[in-house]
Amino acid sequence: MAPNKRHHPRTGGLGMRNDPAILSDSDLLTWRHWSAPLGWFAALGMLLVAMPHLGSLFAALDPEAREPIYRRDAFVDLLANHLLLVAGASSIAILSGVSAAIMVTRPWGRDFLPLVSQLASIGQTFPPVAVLALAVPWLGFGGLPTVVALVLYGLLPVVRNTLVGIGEVDPATREAARGMGMSPRQVLWQLELPLAAPVILAGIRTSVTVGIATAAIGSTIGAKTLGDPIIAGIINGNTAYILQGAILIGVLALSIDSVFARLLPSRR
């Protein structure tokens, strides 16, 4: 999750973009194609089931801990809630980010282009912890301020990549599309969005995976996330708790990321 990655939408599987035939639909449906994500999710499931029974292992890692396994909430519940928060925040970030980028690339919205890209950059540079601190007085404790912080943080990669993706469409192709009599909406849906899709998806991938890691800070203001064991571990000086939270967040992020990795090169 190197932060510099999100400014380079051409990383990942994007080299394939000029060769749409390289991965056909039938490839997408084979088991082998999905083996990596399946592996990651199997690992995640096994961790969830096995974690409560690994007391002796964590006790060995951190002999001072009074209770080696975090038991205030089931890991499954924490994971489900964590995912829910990220899913909510990402949906909002994707919908608003993609539509904002589309609007400012239309002839009538072009004036707002600098404004929108600046707003998105500010959202990203503003630390999510600060957003939380500022949002709590307005929105109270729990999930809502967490979602707000995640949305702001996740907007930039989506907006930036949508702008880049649409901007990369060959002007001659766009002119031909208009010259053939396509309406502006048809140009958007049949030409610009399909061609920009891989770049947009790469932005969404960055946004979502970063969001999964960042959502843990919601635990500081009472949202139930996989950050709970980490916060509890920091407060109680229990390294085993921190490890359990961190491992689950890491494996979750990798699982979701591997799904995107499989989706990307196949996009036309």
Binding site: N18, P20, T173, A176, A177
Partner: peptide, 11 residues
């Protein structure tokens, strides 16, 4: 309408 760069849809 036909142009030099063809403007064919690449996808």
């Amino acid at each position: 309408y036909a142009i030099q760069s063809t403007g064919l849809f690449p996808h």
